[in-house]
Every structure is written in C-alpha cells, then in structure tokens.
Design a protein around this nucleic acid. Structure first.
Length: 429
RNA sequence: GCUCCCAUCGUCUAGUGGCCUAGGACACAGCCCUCUCAAGGCUGGUACACGAGUUCGAAUCUCGUUGGGAGCGCCA
C-alpha cells in the first residue's frame, strides 16, 4: 500500500486516514507498507540529481506567469498547450527565479503502451512535452515519484483508472531513462455517475466509509464494483472467496460504466440474506446506536437480524424498521390502527392475550399454534387475528411473520402491548 | 482546440462471422405464493448509435460519421 501524498496541501492526515480506514473496512489488506512518499524525499532528490548529471533533466527558469501566457497563446491558436522547451538546451541561469526541473522527453519516435485491457496504444513523442519533475521549492511531483517507486518497489502490475492512460507514455520514458523495465499496465474503465457524466461529489463520489454508515456490507460493495466491466457467466452474487478466485484482469472490458444505486441495494440485500447472524448483529448494534438506542444483547440482535434479513436493503433500514423490537413505540401508525384496532378485533386480542399468557414455551411455532387456535375458535380467517396482533405488537402494519416477530419481541412486552391495544380500542369507541 | 480512449435493453453485462426473430441481472408491470412486508417462482415490454464496405452470411471484421469520456498543471 502506497500513499501518494507529495502534495502537502491536499494530503492531510485526515485524508490519509480515510483511505486507510476504507481499505480496512473493505478487507483490502496490504501485504507491504503503507509506504508514504513524503518519507522518501531523499531518494527522489537523489534520482533527480542523477538525471541532471546525466543530462536527462534540466533546469527551467520560466515563471508560472510566463507558462500561463504561453498556454493561453497556444490555446488561442488552437494548438495543444505544451511547454515549448525554451530552457531545454540552455545552461545559463536566470537571477531572481527559482528554477523547476524538467525531464528531457525524447523528441521523436513513439512510445507504445502495451495495455492489458486496451491493447497496444501508440503515442508520438512529439505530442509529449518536458514535464516538471521537481517544483521550484525542490519537491518532486507525482508522475516522477511513482516512476521511482514502481522501480524501487519492483512493481509488476499497475492497475488504475484509464484517466491515467495519457500519463503512461511519459512514465515509460522516465522508466527507460532509469534503465528500468516498465511494469504491466492495465487501465480499467472509469465509473461514471448515474447520469453518465463524470462522477462527482453530487453523485455520491464519497468516501467508502459512507457506505458503511449507510449500512452496506463490504462484500456487497465489492461485489457491485467487481461486476462493473467484468462478468462471469450469468453470476451476479459473489462471495469474497469467489471474487478472488474468479476475477481475472484479462477479462475486464474497455467501456466506462454508470453507477447504479439500485443494483448496489439489491446486491446488499442478497449479501445480507447470506451473512452470518453474528456479523449482522454487530453492524445492527452500531446502527441502533446511531438511532439513539443502546442494545448489547447479542442473542436478541441476532434474532432480529434473522427475522429481518430478507426485508432490508441496508442494515440502516433494518435498524429503522426494527425499533419496536428494542423499545416501546409512542403511537400507532394511523392507517394501520384505523383498519385493525377496531371493536371487532377486540375479541381476538383478548383471546390472544389470555392464550399467550399461559403459553409455556415462548417460541415461534408455539405462538403460531396459538394464533391458529384463536382464529379457529372465533371462526375467522388467519388475517383477522394476525393483523390486529401485528399492529398491537409492532405499532404498524408491516413486520416479519407475526409468530416470529412476537417471539423476538418477548412475552412480557407482547402482553403489555396487547393490553394497551385493547385500551386503545375502548378509548375510541 | 489538440492527443488518446470508448460505443449491445434506462443501467450492469453475455456475445469474438452462422447456435441471435440477441441471453442473464437490476429497475418497471402483471400473476402465483401469502397473516402484512419481503424473499422466492412465473410472465411481459425495452437494445446491437448511424452510414458505407468485406463476406454466401455481421452485434461480431474495416473505414467514416455521430455521441460520450479522459488528458493537455510548479494536482494526484
């Protein structure tokens, strides 16, 4: 893991920490490093001196203003803005200007990037200019640092967004100047926003940790991402192990893809359905905490996860829809109460209360029998008993199967809520 | 503007000259299941950007057009 932090203004400790935390959450663990470029300054300066000595780089005394003007003129003339090489062959100095150092790019011939994904891409050296490898304050720049690092660290494969494809010929030229063999390059297609435009903050191009907060599972995010530009037959859902085993960079396609939040949600649900209850319980605990409810009972959390796992797109949503399991609700859902907590439902609620009161074994199957018995006794359909019970127990008309739901809510709480519902009905009529 | 990249349903993709009146998935609609909501099952609509060529035959090969993206920083 390499942290490319040569720009001191942008690369704050917080920004770096977000990267580290994000990698950790995703389970993308480094086997070496992290290496910080800011700690390798001496090495970069050494190579710059070497380039200078060998005539592979030179000092350029143009000021920023002069460069801006040059670019503006070229743009006006409909040319590609590029450095014109003013100082390439000069050895004199200019007083009062701290020079930058530029790499002497070859002027003719071509550079071929043999890319795993794009195939051979040919660049004319005449299209490339002499890029700055050290700023006037002496600090090295990104395109130079990565070249030195890739060489020093024996990097074999560079996999990155294809927005870097245009940088690659320059990097190869510097690698050649160093006498190094370029690594294998694979420029993967970019991910665009849902509207097909460039991904920006407005589209949710946020830290991966935001997905953690929203209640996504890391394997779901990875699963979504791995299927962008890559597929394996008709398979959509992959475990971490399958992704590792099946993914092959050689099978990645070339075209950019648009971010689809719906599919991410669906995949998250698929992974929630398959995840171990203990894992879900841990995330649920955090999600409940964010909603202001502290709950430490691991068994209860796992029970909630197990009854809810099929009906939540995210763990955040699961927590929001599971509050009645962990704390009492203040009011009934208006529509649900109007429909179900009515006089004709009272006998069912009363019968349920007494039958559940004397129920020896508090389990979903046992509760299921009670509900069935009450329905039979009163000679009504299952729904006439289950729905009032649901609203009484949960406060609303939506929940997992009512027998399992009541089992998780617990005996004491259920009986209290059954009484409360009957009082509510009395109050209305 | 210049250089580079890309182009199959709304979206992610299968497809490497005949198996394609184009397959799967998300989303959408309907039905089934059903104590609600889901999950699951079934059914349905929607795509080879356009134009030339090569070929007995093209989504697949070639060229052009159009459209989209990236790069052109003393940013990374």
């Amino acid at each position: 893991l390499r942290i490319e932090d040569t720009d001191r203004e942008r690369s704050t400790d917080e920004a770096t920490q977000v990267i580290l935390d994000g990698m950790k959450w995703l389970g993308l663990n480094e086997d070496e490093g992290p290496f910080y470029q800011t700690k390798r300054m001496d090495r970069y300066k050494e190579v710059i001196q070497q380039f200078l000595r060998e005539g592979k780089a030179y000092r350029c005394y143009c000021t920023k203003e002069e460069l801006d003007e040059m670019r503006a003129k070229q743009m006006a003339a409909k040319l590609k803005p590029r450095y014109d090489g003013t100082w390439r062959n000069r050895t004199d100095v200019r007083e009062g200007v701290e020079p930058v150092i530029r790499f002497k790019n070859p002027v003719d011939g071509v550079v071929v990037v043999d890319d795993v994904i794009h195939g051979k891409v040919v660049f004319e050296n005449s299209e490339l200019d002499d890029l700055i490898i050290a700023r006037s304050d002496g600090t090295p720049t990104y395109n130079f640092c990565v070249v030195v690092d890739d060489w020093d660290m024996n990097i074999t494969h560079v996999v990155r967004g294809d927005d870097h494809l245009n940088n690659t010929p320059r990097q190869i030229n510097m690698l050649m100047a160093l006498g190094a063999t370029p690594p294998v390059y694979a420029h993967v297609p970019m991910i665009l926003g849902a509207d097909g435009a460039k991904l920006s903050k407005r589209h949710g191009a946020v830290s991966v940790l935001q997905y953690q907060e929203e209640g996504y599972l890391p394997e779901a995010l990875l699963n979504y991402l791995v299927r962008l530009g890559w597929s394996h037959g008709d398979q959509e859902v992959f475990t971490m192990e399958e992704m590792i085993k099946l993914f092959d960079i050689n099978d990645v396609n070339k075209s950019a893809s648009a971010f689809n939040a719906d599919k991410l949600s669906w995949l998250n649900q698929q992974h929630i359905m398959k995840a171990p209850a203990s894992v879900l319980a841990n995330v649920l605990r955090e999600q409940f905490a964010m909603l202001g409810v502290q709950i430490e009972d691991q068994q209860k959390l796992e029970a909630i996860a197990n009854v809810q796992r099929e009906r939540a797109k995210t763990l955040k949503e699961m927590a929001q829809n599971s509050l009645y399991f962990v704390k009492d609700f203040d009011a009934y859902d208006d529509k649900a109460a109007k429909k179900n907590l009515v006089a004709e439902a009272k006998p069912a609620l009363a019968a349920l209360e007494s039958a559940l009161q004397s129920l020896a074994e508090w389990s979903a199957p046992a509760i299921h029998n009670v509900i069935n018995d009450v329905a039979t006794q009163l000679n009504v359909g299952m729904g006439k008993v289950a729905q009032p019970l649901r609203v009484a127990a949960c406060g609303g008309a939506v929940s997992p199967p009512i027998d399992a739901t009541v089992a998780v809510i617990g005996k004491e709480r259920t009986l209290q809520r059954l009484q409360k519902a009957q009082l509510y009905i009395d109050g209305r009529h």
